[in-house]
Nucleic acid binder design. Structure first.
Lengths: 226, 226
DNA sequence: GATATTACTTGATTTACGTCAAGTTCAAAA
DNA sequence: TTTTGAACTTGACGTAAATCAAGTAATATC
């Protein structure tokens, strides 16, 4: 019973499952397998059979891909409530990406087969999903274009502000270590370190210890362009 | 009658409308408005009411967005058979992007309202659409990650090979003028010019006249990294 | 506690690429 | 044809940021 209660909570976290009646939510929760993943462990690996979709119930997970030239790329950062796997729904096969837990995490998984059946029997879920994917495409398109013409400083400042706004705090521990943050922003750890130092000397932020950061001037951060 | 025949042909171009029965296709074709757009004209402008979706029946259209700082960004290049507007389906409002015809073009338009109704009454269309959007997300994610860590030379070489493969020819006229190609690849016309010269001197390509290009060593192009 | 390992910082150097400027080729209009 | 203007090329230069290298702080292991 407790397990089921947790599964319902997990399902309700996900935007595409919101605004559904209780019965539908309960029927989705029945499909869910809960799983604990320790920091540093993998939720799945590239090359695995791609047979389930994951909801992050708690924690933080990085999704990476290796290029032909052996470089690791950070594709996506999954936070509580994020849903992964929707994009390859009707394309069974091997995973191209790996997902590693950056913190201890709890993940709810639904089998691809069950999810496809759900989409077919529940029009509201299908329409929510269309909506969510559409927004995602628009966001990715805008982001892709912006990335091409944006400096590292801008991307970093933007990341700091977005993270602050996601956490609802102007003071927080950076959820990524600098190596991963560098991957995420497409730069090097050295440059991250230097840019943060620069922001601090400009009075935009204050650094405390290795990871803790306070945003002192959010408007200033949003106007950074070098 | 002829018009209707054209509309059916146009609808059949689009992946999400394929593998449907003839009757459904015909009912979709009834919703379509055909429109000719001359080279240099706009299919729609940023700020327009966003009330219809467009299928490119013939020609080439560039979708751009202007940043706050006034810079133009090329978001997407639409080719014959491409479908635009799916991403903002349930978010009515003003267009953020403009679309300009790069060649004389024929565009089939469906009103947002009719398309939403179609999605609700035809499950096959909705599922095809989910599939298409999912693939698009995966592609954009991979591309976004690659963009961050990839040199202009790599992106250009990649573009040349992809275009060749899309056209089915190793020798072709570049469909974009260099200014637009530069926007698309996030670089400057000067750099494009230099990189092409470099590729030519390495025996990877041959340039003839202003726009014509022959790929001499596709494997070599795919291995470019500077 | 001491030591080893990993994360991070800081400095020096190099490089890719953007920008500015001066041509050159091409195409359309007169 | 000549002319005009746009697209393109080429060169010189400056700069953001990658890379290389050496050192310092934090964390983990013994």
């Amino acid at each position: 019973m407790l397990k089921h209660h947790d599964a319902i909570a997990c399902v309700k976290l996900v935007p595409i499952f919101q605004q559904l009646d209780h019965q539908t939510v309960a029927s989705i929760a029945d499909l869910v397998q809960e799983r604990h993943v320790k920091k540093g462990e993998f939720v799945f690996l590239a090359g695995d059979e791609d047979e389930s979709l994951s909801i992050i119930a708690h924690g933080q997970v990085k999704v990476t891909q290796s290029t032909a030239s052996g470089r690791e790329q950070l594709i996506r950062l999954l936070q509580t409530g994020d849903f992964d796997g929707e994009s390859g729904l009707f394309e069974p096969g091997e995973r191209q990406t790996s997902a590693e837990a950056l913190t201890d995490a709890q993940v709810c998984q639904i089998s691809r087969h069950d999810f496809q059946a759900l989409l077919q029997r529940s029009q509201p879920v299908a329409l929510n999903m269309l909506n969510a994917l559409g927004k995602r495409v628009a966001q990715l398109e805008a982001q892709a274009a912006a990335t091409l013409t944006t400096s590292v400083g801008e991307r970093l400042a933007n990341y700091l502000v977005e993270t602050s706004s996601a956490l609802g705090e102007t003071e927080y521990d950076l959820p990524l270590q600098k190596k991963d943050l560098a991957l995420y922003l497409g730069t090097s750890p050295e440059t991250i370190s230097r840019k943060l130092g620069q922001f601090a000397s400009q009075g935009l932020i204050k650094q405390q210890g290795r990871n803790h950061i306070s945003l002192l001037d959010i408007d200033g951060l949003m106007m950074v362009n070098g």
